[in-house]
Nucleic acid binder design. Structure first.
Lengths: 319, 319
DNA sequence: TTGTAAGCGTTATCAT
DNA sequence: ATGATAACGCTTACAA
């Protein structure tokens, strides 16, 4: 484990000179450079990155706060993040939180302790205030529709997307509309609930608690919803499902139970995951990969502005 | 940015004492502990983790080499890894490689430079020799069936699983069997090809290149294979598909094209992803979450042994 | 039980 | 162009 001093000694130069060739600074003669390079070779020298981190106060590491690491929505986002991190020469450290504030807190502390230069929060349980109090330790960007005064956000406009979905269903002649949501008390979800209520009001329909299916994240959840739906006395004729995975689970199970889509119930998914095309599921395309890319760009540039990405309806056969 | 010396001064103790309370060492009186804690409070002190890393030579970071971050097989593995890392108090740094040796090399260098304490290689393009040459810098575990002399491996027995799948198809009366594979030249894939050829020989069937579908990773690939299959003059009556995602893509597209499963072609998937149950896909269950957990346990314990996990047939309606 | 001081391996400032 | 030397902030012998 030779260090920079050993190399300097071996090459008969100062550590500064070694550091200079290491960092390709100008002002070092070809002669010395060669000597240093030979010494490094001979000693099998390599840099200790932690010493560099300590000295520079930078790590070129971005922390990513993510509830579930193998969830289709998040892993699409992640792909964009990872692709762009590669481009920018950053590495990623993952903090899988399961929406536990305690785990999110660990990520915040990592920023504070300079384990990472910056933080990307893909979804959160913590309050804005908690995040705000850590901003002085590094750049933080949140993947959320809500725009905060001082914390930059990048996301899709989930409120508008949902409202658009509602109107689309109404335009197709539906009045009795329910929906499936991942985590009802999440920020984006509250936005969607707001859009839902507003549209219901607009078309003069009552709010029916039992038409909101909560905890919908996976294919299995979609299957479960079919049973819940089937057990309903009064059934909605249309369902907005905020994840194509869940919608897919619903469709596959519905087929088994002879529930016809869209005849018995129309389905609108969100994401435009490949599974949607395979199942001929009408869905709202969300540019998640681009959001991921932008998240990294913003956090690296320390860009304090927020960006909202557009969504797009993809009409197929489920509505 | 107060440091440990500032705290020591403020509390009127030595830095060692501060370090002791920081690391909850014994041999520090309640009185001093309180004084130190007060000083830390007053100064808003927090540790700089890079200094700790430099000093201890440890980071409690595990590097994960992964080809694609949003691929169902890998993200299931990842979930197990992340869950266990949480338990063990390690964080994860991701090196998404797209199977580029150059990117894998970066991860190896990170280990060498002590950016991470250990490395988990979920799949690789690099040679064994390359990996071997980095073993002296930290614990490395590879997720692969092949057992290497000195490099510990944890995986499912892909050879046996595939062979079992072949025999199962044969037992169900199939003689004309093809298969879909992700990356034909991967280690696990070669093992599967070996099993394939051996079984073909056993039942006296010729090897048909055109019955091997390569590059099958996603739902879309499964769809594509349906077209390729449909275009075949002589068609296999059974297909082993080494990923449930691909199998799902195949099944959904097959249904559109009125190809009946299992009547026209029997399908056997691998993984037992939730999508398999939803589609009534017969599949071979691979305990990927457990593999992920074991990968972390092994790398943390510096356990040099290899472990192979059992698989299990899940019979449903596609064969 | 507490403290002094020597690392850990860099980078960066300031001379020369 | 090159080099001393002081940070960076912590841990850990060793001494007391």
């Amino acid at each position: 484990m030779a260090n920079i001093r050993d190399v300097a000694k071996q090459a008969e130069v100062s550590v500064t000179t070694v550091s200079r060739v290491l960092n390709q600074h100008p002002y070092v003669t070809e002669e010395k450079r060669v000597a240093v390079e030979r010494a490094m070779e001979e000693l099998g020298y390599f840099q200790n990155i932690n010493a560099i981190h300590l000295s520079t106060g930078e790590t070129r590491l971005i922390g990513v706060v993510i509830p579930y690491i193998n969830h289709s929505y998040f892993s699409t986002l992640l792909k964009g993040i990872a692709d762009q991190a590669l481009v920018q020469g950053y590495n990623l450290v993952f903090y899988q939180t399961n929406y536990m504030k305690e785990e999110e807190h660990k990520a915040f502390e990592a920023l504070k302790q300079k384990q990472v230069d910056a933080l990307l929060i893909l979804s959160r349980a913590s309050e804005w205030e908690a995040i705000e109090s850590y901003q002085s330790f590094g750049s933080i960007v949140v993947c959320e529709t809500a725009s905060h005064e001082t914390i930059p956000c990048v996301s899709v406009d989930h409120y508008e997307a949902f409202r658009f979905g509602m109107r689309y269903m109404v335009d197709q002649g539906h009045q009795k509309i329910g929906y499936c949501i991942g985590r009802r008390n999440g920020t984006n979800s509250k936005l969607r609930e707001k859009a839902y209520c507003e549209e219901l009001e607009r078309i003069g329909q009552p709010f029916r608690e039992e038409w909101i299916f909560n905890g919908c994240l996976t294919i299995e959840d979609g299957k479960r919803v079919v049973s819940e739906y089937a057990a309903l006395n009064e059934k909605p004729s249309a369902l907005l499902i905020t994840s194509d995975q869940v919608a897919a689970g619903f469709m596959m199970e519905a087929q088994k139970q002879q529930i016809q889509i869209p005849n018995n119930v129309a389905i609108l998914g969100f994401d435009n995951h490949p599974i949607a095309e395979a199942l001929d599921l009408t869905t709202i395309h969300l540019p998640l990969h681009e959001v991921g890319v932008n998240l990294v760009e913003k956090v690296v540039k320390k860009d304090k502005t927020s960006t909202i990405y557009p969504f797009e309806l993809v009409e197929r056969g489920s509505v």
